[in-house]
């Protein structure tokens, strides 16, 4: 008897194998389709309106032509920066606790709570911050940044925890055996040792909140000019896109496509840039 697959069973098995492989492969490629379609459509609709004025000028009123979204871009920059200042240290501290100290029941409950926070709809976060801050000091950058920071918190916390757990325990013991207190082992050895991974987590969190619209509607509110004070409403790209898109004025709708393109591009380059930097850094370390 030869070793060729000739029987009916063998041929059936091969056919099933090919069909299953084809299905998995096909669906995997299909997963890329939404991204390609969305970014392609935004690119086509928006590219014509991304001009110099879009980046440098303030919005014009309804019915007028021209103008840009300079204030919204600046506003998104301010809001995301402030959210990072609050959300990254807060989330990191939570993640460090969960990874380095969290062995007992308290930690399990905390970890579960953080996971639940991830699934709280962002508009609910906005309403929460409205009640907490906006009713006292009004629509402001503070309120907007707080809402974004709350959305960042669980993402940063869980990514920090997962990354730090990857460090072998022997490294912690080496630090302790050297006569370092635990907090110094964490801050001077563990955190620098996994900085690359931590930054990736931060970037994912930033990319997530840079495009958030719902929580900003109730908190940062938005305006048509440059904000000069952090306790006043501030514009942001997602809210501006939302407002312009539903305005019905052709010139504003056109600009909101441009805004969408800029926002998607921003998030894309943030992700891409971080990953390239990490890749280069790792390659350098392995080489030398």
């Amino acid at each position: 008897m030869g070793l060729q697959a000739t029987s009916f069973q063998d041929r059936k098995r091969k056919a099933i194998n090919i069909a299953a492989l084809g299905a998995v492969l096909g669906l995997a490629f299909l997963a890329a389709v939404p991204f390609v379609l969305v970014s392609g459509y935004i690119l086509v609709k928006g590219i014509g309106s991304v001009d110099w004025a879009f980046f440098t000028e303030l919005p014009k009123g309804p019915g007028e032509t021209g103008g840009g979204m300079a204030n919204a871009m600046a506003g998104t920059g301010v809001l995301v920066t402030m959210a990072c200042l609050l959300g990254i240290p807060w989330g990191m501290a939570t993640g460090i606790y969960l990874s380095e100290y969290g062995h007992g029941k308290t930690a399990s409950i905390l970890r579960f709570t953080v996971d639940l926070l991830t699934s709280v709809p962002s508009i609910i976060v906005g309403i929460f911050v409205y009640g907490l801050i906006v009713v006292h000091i009004g629509y402001s950058s503070y309120a907007g940044a707080a809402a974004l920071a709350i959305i960042m918190l669980p993402i940063v916390a869980r990514s920090t925890e997962e990354i730090m757990k990857l460090i072998p325990n022997s490294v912690r013991e080496a630090g302790l055996a050297l006569g370092l207190p635990r907090w110094k082992v964490i801050l001077r050895i563990l955190v620098p040792g996994c900085m690359g991974g931590l930054v990736t987590g931060f970037m994912l969190a930033i990319a997530r909140v840079a495009g958030e619209t719902a929580p900003l509607l109730f908190t940062a509110f938005g305006n048509q000019f440059y904000s000069t004070s952090l306790d006043q409403p501030i514009a942001s790209l997602p809210v501006q896109i939302y407002n312009f898109a539903k305005s019905g004025f052709p010139d504003l709708v056109r600009q909101s496509w441009a805004g969408a393109l800029v926002l998607v591009g921003l998030v894309f380059f943030l992700n891409f840039g971080t990953r390239s930097l990490l890749y280069l850094k790792n390659r350098k370390e392995i080489k030398s």
Binding site: S170, A177, I189, P192, C194
Partner: peptide
Amino acid sequence: VRRKVGMVFQKPNPFPGL
């Protein structure tokens, strides 16, 4: 105590990233 009693481990464990 650990500053007076150093330790070398079974598997080499240099600090990563340093």
